[in-house]
Design a protein around this nucleic acid. Structure first.
Lengths: 396, 396
DNA sequence: CCATCTTTTTCCACACTCAGGACAAAGTCG
DNA sequence: CGACTTTGTCCTGAGTGTGGAAAAAGATGG
């Protein structure tokens, strides 16, 4: 079911669409204040957008002391699909044109089952959301995958944790299936875009967004734009050396950050602690579940388990060491920490902060907030919607 | 002696001026191929530039099969001043509008003598270059200082190795003295711009430029533009921890890269080796000179001294560890190594390369050249000229 | 040496865009 | 109810840029 979504005809229209996306409904007069176009010109462009159906009239705005202005908003029927494929689960969200989440589904799924199985799942989730009446069709879809992506083509390249995905034409295939434009990016970059659009990073031009999941990655935003690097692997900080001659890592080196702190490493450490009898809480948990995850450590910490707390603190210190280096190098205006293990919360945050503030120079840390992401599991999906909306709201 | 340099009236003219700067003399027809403007429009803009005197006619171009085209070039009387203030010496260069170095002076001087003394020296060097007939006046000057700069205002902020410079209005003061526009930036950023304009980094959009001098810094170029960070301290990698619990550093921490490898650290290590009698070459040198510098180590290495070579290799390994992390994080298309100790040359390079290729992931290092800068001591001055020319060649 | 073909440049007419003013419509406020 | 403010529409005039025609300058081939 192909939907022909109109596209803006020029940069002015694109600008207006993005303003409406970011600021919501707006009066014509207000728009005039924002865009520095003559009233005549603005009227023409708005009329054209109304004709194409991308925006609709939306009643009258409250008076600002004179005649009331007509409100304009993005077409309420526009729908974007945001897909965040993680290592062990899939998040799918439907948003309207303002990128508000109308519905959200989460399914556990191992990305290693390969692109065909995963996309089957994604499409069925999308269908379920449609069946719930949230969308009739999609005007665009953003897809996040847990590995490097050749961005212009929308193709994963040499993804370490996604065997079978290398070179798979994700963009092409999903565009075919969904009948709408599709953009693909690294999941961490999308999380950064999500927090930038609707989360803690609003109005920050340069920031880092560290995502701790099964692995560790870092979204880099420079001047409002995501930096992807020449091969799309920028932000891949999981294999930076955190401990000289430390633990062996799947990548073949030793002491990688990921080997010492990540969802996977944390789970292993916890199991070991449980087996060695250092934590009664974790031992019980291990016995009932058969294995432990980062979430178990999080729960243990919340229950006051000292071993769990110590694991988190130690991990935060490792992470903080690496982040301190990145802060010195990049001098961001904000550091966001998010991902599945946000449940580790303030213990982790405190540990990272301590390390960064101690190790980086005052000029770089002086006014540097280090905070948790505020969008939780939908950050990636919102970022994905943002990605594709940027594409759809740009001149054809 | 104030010179009123004309400025381009619009973006098209600015574009043309930069093309002429980067490509040298050019025929009108060739320009037409490059800029995607109608012939009429192009003719008008070129004529206006001719009127303002920013460009001049320059004979006829060779025929391309028909009527010969008129050559156009930037006014040959335009002069930029490039100043690179290092920790221990000052480089001043005069360039024409194409940023070719017409004359270059170098003077040892300790930056700690403060801005007043330093600028006195700079002005006297500029006067000397003028007296040599290289310039009548300057149409702009770029200044590099060895510390963080609040870029828009051109003011150093909290520079660790430049006490007395904090908050000094460098841009304002020099603009007054020289009677021309002035821009100020970190010396490392300027070196990066220099290598980008005329050195190894031509045609690379994203790259890192590591400068090893008295300290260590790193210029970051993203999408062709220098990234300065929110407080102007981006690229300050000298205080990234390279050795856990390593040597104490002036910054108060331990194990900073700069404490283990930099011009200053190298000199100290060499002196110690000399005193301990581990190297006859260095011991002799120490006796005659009273102290050692990085240049001595360089000379010793060239002479085959094993201790010197080992010092360089060890330092390269430390540097390589840090650079490997930056490569993973930033995924650049090129890494340039330059600065005063380029004399350490290929020994250093080999050591850094080994470490980076070993520690970073193949996707990031797959096609990553790591090379020495090719502009030597004038890289900074050329970058400074480039900086100010970008400013002068932009609409007023 | 001349005729023909190319390339470059200039000139010009036409279309298009856009800013800004005038004016009508719709509200507020006293 | 009247004066003032804000918003929206219409219209004109200035300016800009495109593309064609033709002239200028040279190359090529007989």
């Amino acid at each position: 079911m192909r939907r022909m979504t109109a596209r803006p005809e020029n940069a002015h229209q694109a600008r207006l669409l993005r303003l409406l996306r970011d600021n919501g409904s707006n009066s014509r007069a207000q728009l005039g204040d924002l865009v520095d176009l003559s009233r005549s010109k603005l009227a023409v462009e708005v009329d054209r957008l109304l004709e194409t159906g991308l925006v609709v009239a939306d009643g009258l705005a409250p008076s600002r002391g004179g005649r009331r202005s007509h409100n304009i908003r993005l077409a309420p029927t526009l729908r974007f699909l945001g897909v965040d494929i993680g290592a062990t689960s899939i998040d799918v969200a439907v948003t309207n044109a303002e990128l508000e989440v109308l519905g959200h589904l989460n399914q556990p799924m191992d990305v290693r089952e390969g692109p065909v199985a995963v996309f089957e799942q994604v499409l069925s989730m999308a269908a379920k959301l449609k069946a719930a009446g949230l969308a009739e069709g999609f005007d665009g879809a953003g897809i996040g995958v847990p590995g490097p992506v050749r961005f212009p083509e929308g193709v994963p390249v040499a993804p370490p944790i996604m065997p079978g995905w290398d070179g798979f034409p994700v963009r092409e295939a999903l565009s075919q299936e969904l009948g709408c434009p599709v953009m693909v990016d690294n999941d961490v970059n999308l999380m950064a875009m999500g927090e930038q659009h609707a989360g803690v990073a609003r109005s920050v031009g340069d920031f880092l967004c560290v995502k701790i999941g099964t692995g560790i990655g870092c979204g880099i935003v420079v001047g409002g734009d995501v930096h992807r690097g020449v091969t799309g692997s920028a932000g891949d900080i999981g294999h930076i050396q955190a401990v000289p001659d430390g633990r062996p890592c799947a990548c073949g080196n030793r002491g990688c950050l990921e080997a010492h702190f990540s969802g996977a490493a944390l789970a292993e450490d916890a199991e070991q602690a449980a087996r060695e009898g250092r934590s009664a809480y974790l031992a019980t948990r291990l016995e009932t579940a058969g294995s432990l995850t980062a979430a178990d450590v999080s729960a243990a910490a919340a229950a006051g388990d000292t071993v769990a707390l110590e694991l988190i603190r130690e991990g935060g210190k490792r992470l903080g060491q690496v982040v301190a280096g990145l802060v010195s190098f990049f001098n961001p205006g904000l550091v966001v920490i998010g991902g599945g293990v946000t449940g580790l919360g303030h213990t982790l945050l405190a540990s990272v902060r301590t390390q960064v503030y101690r190790q980086s120079l005052p000029l770089a840390t002086g006014n540097l907030p280090i905070v948790l992401g505020e969008l939780g599991p939908v950050a990636g999906a919102i970022g994905a919607a943002r990605l594709i909306s940027d594409h759809v709201f740009s001149p054809a």
